[in-house]
């Protein structure tokens, strides 16, 4: 995931969203989507009351893609009532195992 810009007034909101997204678990790997490196970008604006998440899946053929995207949408709508939520799926750049965090690897038993 890209680094947060400390000069951005919405940065704390973005960090909070990232922490909330840790409650969304990949149902197969049992690791949250942030530590799996599935979330590429979080854009959030308190002024516009808008949240946009750009994320990917571990595989194009993942049968749970729709369910994971819904979980992200549900999580944001539940925690940020009054905000419009946009969750977009991208395949560029393709997800790779190098994106898994140290914590994620630990949870996978590595």
């Amino acid at each position: 995931m890209k680094d947060f810009d400390i000069n951005n007034p919405d940065v704390f909101l973005q960090i909070e969203i990232q922490e909330n997204l840790r409650t969304v678990i990949d149902p197969e790997l049992h690791v949250n989507i942030i530590d799996l490196g599935l979330v590429y970008e979080i854009e959030a604006s308190q002024d516009n009351k808008h949240i946009a998440v750009l994320m990917t899946m571990s595989s194009r053929y993942c049968p749970m893609s729709e369910a994971i995207l819904n979980s992200v949408r549900n999580c944001l709508e539940e925690n940020y009532r009054g905000y419009s939520v946009e969750v977009n799926l991208t395949w560029e750049p393709p997800w790779s195992y190098e994106l898994i965090s140290e914590e994620g690897l630990k949870q996978l038993g590595r």
């Binding site: 749970m64 729709e66 819904n70 979980s71 949408r73 549900n74 539940e78």
Partner: peptide, 12 residues
């Protein structure tokens, strides 16, 4: 089964 029962609840 999980998708059927929890798709709307997951994340909330």
């Amino acid at each position: 089964v999980w998708t059927r029962k929890y798709e709307d609840l997951a994340g909330r």
